[in-house]
Simulated assay, not measured.
Amino acid sequence: MINMPRANHWDIFCSVVDNYGDIGVTWRLAKQMANEYHIPVNLWVDDLASFSHILPTLDPLKTAQSFNGVNIIHWIKPLPIEFVAGEVLIEAFACELPEQVKELLVHLHQNDPKSVPIWLNLEYLSAEDWVEGCHGLPSLQANGLKKYFYFPGFGAKTGGLICEQDLFAERDTWQADTANKLQLFSQLGLKGIEAQDTVISIFSYETEALPALCELWQQSAEKIHALIPKGRSLNSLTHLLPCDIAALVPGQQVKHGNLTLHILPMTNQQSFDRLLWSCDINIVRGEDSFMRAQWAAKPFIWHIYPQEDDYHMVKLEAFLKIYCDNLAPEIAENWSKLNFAFNQAQQSAVNLHWQNLNLVSLPLLQHVKQWPINAINAADLATRLVQFVKNS
């Protein structure tokens, strides 16, 4: 490995774990750095096939390609191109840097410590109290290098939340005209949805809570449309489908009573955002869709990724505590219980709390609109990250 002159670009390494969550957040961050801060970004990704589901123009067979000002490089062993150290090096979500990169960093440190990039470990998002105390702490590695732990979060002393500068204005413009959502549904091949119908997007893990809600929705006095991509959510609804999941096609409809299931095509991130903006409620999972559901200013259920010893329920409780802080007590109680019941697959409880929660109540709608403004807390993640690098 040749010691190359230091460049001003940033390198971000991402190992795709849950198909779309890790790469979804990382891709948004890379685009924002390139587009809003004009920082050259090299995004190293180990699974281009999964990545291509949210970036359809990506060629999974190409070693290197550029989109939205970001250089996307296939992360294989050994690296397909020579690694040149830039200003910042980010490990997304605790992935391990390639050994050849670590060797270069050690070599740079031995020859000129000032030439070593600022090394950050971008952690998963959490609303837990301890995050503020751990954010930004340095860790001395065995090889003598220093790595900082960067924690996204909801508090002023955390790393902030992923959010593009013009996102809220674009959302408000979109939601101001009903024609926008109807046009989007048409573009996605979804037929028979009227402006007054209730539309629910579903992007969850497997759970017995889904068939329970679908049974309730079938008996609704009004039409309900559930929009579901081919994937894990449908694994819980096979009894409602006319064929195997693999045989379903985008745009296909399955009707049961007043419930219509629509099979969604995979979309890019902009279309996914607009889909969330267009639905009356969004059931989401992971981290990326979890944040985008909040920015959509619509009611949502968060199906958090299950962890050992039910630690994910601790994370859920921490989030609900801050999210419901300004809600009326009875709304906050029902909202929290609905999310807990969904995550614990409590079928009867899910249905009960769904019916008790008035999704079109003015206090709730006011809350979901005000929450993004409060949550951004004066600065988004990219802005705080750039400032953190300057201060370091």
Rank of each mutant, 00 (worst) to 15 (best):
S52K: 06
V389E: 05
N326K: 15
L365D: 03
G189D: 08
Q355Y: 03
L241K: 08
S220N: 12
L108Q: 14
I245K: 02
T173W: 00
G251W: 00
A345Q: 13
K223T: 12
F51V: 03
S220T: 04
V25H: 06
L29H: 07
R232T: 09
L48K: 12
N121D: 14
L120Y: 06
Q269H: 02
L320Y: 06
A247E: 14
P250F: 02
E317K: 14
I90L: 06
A127G: 07
Q269R: 00
A92C: 11
W75P: 04
F388V: 06
Y37Q: 11
T260Q: 00
V88M: 07
N334S: 15
V389D: 06
L167P: 08
A176V: 01
S236I: 08
W295F: 10
D280T: 00
Y148I: 10
Q65R: 09
H239I: 08
L105R: 05
H367M: 02
L48Q: 10
H225M: 03
Q294M: 14
M313G: 01
L327M: 15
A332Y: 09
N3C: 11
N351M: 14
K147C: 08
R285A: 06
D166R: 09
F203H: 09
I39V: 14
G257E: 07
F51N: 02
G189W: 05
T26F: 02
Q370I: 10
I12T: 00
L240V: 01
V41R: 01
F154R: 02
I304A: 04
T207P: 03
T63R: 09
H303W: 07
Q100W: 03
P250G: 04
K390R: 14
N3I: 15
E215L: 12
S201F: 00
M291K: 09
K191R: 12
I202L: 15
D166T: 13
A296K: 00
S50W: 02
L210S: 11
H312C: 08
V16N: 05
I373L: 13
G159V: 02
F342N: 06
A375N: 12
A176G: 13
F342W: 15
Q65F: 07
V106A: 10
